[in-house]
């Protein structure tokens, strides 16, 4: 058993209490078994996302920098192997949201590359009694799972393999763009590898890094529905049984707006859209199958699965039935 790795956790507005609460819940349940100790950043605020940065430059940087400043001064006390308290600081800031990830990274690099801007931000932070020295490293939760936890470790933890579940790995935009820190941004493979590790099958999916419409879904609904339609069509035509995402906004757009896409384009998509943490949880947490009854309309209330709007029951049924038949055969 390997020890815990400590990270500062920045949930972001939607995973904390907004439209992607299921993401936050599944992360809470999965992080322990994966050996990740995620310590929530005390009193964090919204990163500002695209809308703030698009309307006010300096203000949006200050809003993002407050989180960085808080992360820099956070110290946590943990017990080491001999149960002695040890103080840790300078932890990496981990966020599960691709938009928070890009926005915070953008703030870090703008303040690094434009000293004038950094100077102004420093003044604003000082007005709030804060200071940012520029030492925080911002990381995406998926990258931490892929690089730090590692596929080998995850493989050793799998108790309910996905039994060939056909999954479309959807990366979305802001994990690997504008700057990719770990995978090939033109043809990413990491999420597909994770799916294979969990025992699923990653289907070909040419829309895997295309845009879901992001927040334009509110002001420009028809435009966004067209983009969502293309993604769903690509996944469905390749025989996917579900889509897996790593961004709360992508999940909300693909999941909650699927009914609107169906009525606008006269289609009948019924693709569950899971977070990657939910998929990991299904494979490595050993409790789901005894309580799941096939064809039962209510989704079990764990891993945040009950918050998925397109019911994830077909996925659970696939896992249950393949295991059931395998048990009968043996």
């Amino acid at each position: 058993m390997k020890g815990f790795s400590y990270f500062l956790y920045f949930p972001g507005c939607s995973s904390a209490e907004g439209t992607a609460v299921g993401y936050g819940q599944s992360i809470k349940e999965v992080s322990g078994p994966l050996g990740l100790a995620l310590v929530e950043l005390e009193d964090w605020n919204c990163c500002g996302s695209t809308p703030y940065g698009s309307t006010r430059e300096l203000e949006s940087l200050c809003i993002a920098a407050r989180n960085l400043a808080l992360a820099e001064k956070t110290k946590i006390t943990v017990l080491d192997e001999d149960s002695k308290p040890v103080e840790k600081n300078g932890l990496d800031l981990v966020t599960p949201c691709s938009s928070c990830y890009t926005t915070l990274k953008r703030a870090v690099s703008l303040m690094r590359d434009y000293p004038d801007l950094k100077h102004k931000v420093d003044e604003c932070l000082a007005a709030a009694g804060l200071e940012y020295k520029g030492k925080v490293k911002v990381r995406h939760l998926f990258e931490v799972v892929y690089n730090d936890v590692g596929l080998e470790f995850i493989k050793s933890k799998v108790v309910n393999p996905l039994n060939g579940l056909k999954v479309a790995a959807y990366y979305g935009c802001q994990l690997l763009r504008p700057e990719a820190s770990f995978d090939n941004p033109r043809n990413p493979q990491s999420l597909g590898q994770l799916i294979t590790t969990l025992g699923g099958e990653s289907v070909p999916f040419h829309q895997k890094d295309r845009c879901c419409g992001s927040s334009l879904v509110i002001p420009e609904l028809d435009l966004a529905l067209g983009l969502i339609h293309e993604i769903l069509e690509s996944a469905a035509s390749n025989g996917a049984q579900c889509i897996v995402t790593l961004c709360p906004l992508c999940q909300t757009n693909l999941d909650a707006y699927q009914s609107l896409v169906n009525s606008k384009f006269k289609t009948k998509y019924n693709l569950p859209v899971l977070f990657f943490t939910q998929l990991i949880g299904l494979a490595i947490i050993p409790k789901v199958f005894p309580i799941h009854i096939p064809k039962y309309p209510i989704v079990p209330e764990y891993l945040g699965l009950h918050t998925n709007i397109v019911s994830p029951n077909p996925v659970l049924e696939h896992l249950f039935m393949t295991r059931f038949y395998a048990a009968q055969r043996s």
Binding site: W44, K120, A128, H306
Partner: peptide, 29 residues
């Protein structure tokens, strides 16, 4: 229905810090 809507806004403890920063940023930029 799927409990994905929070009806009450949550105010962070440092909301005053945000106000101070916004005020300063507007004065500067």
């Amino acid at each position: 229905l799927h409990r994905r809507m929070a009806f009450m806004p949550r105010r962070i403890k440092g909301a005053e810090q945000i106000k101070a920063m916004v005020k300063k940023a507007q004065a500067l930029g």
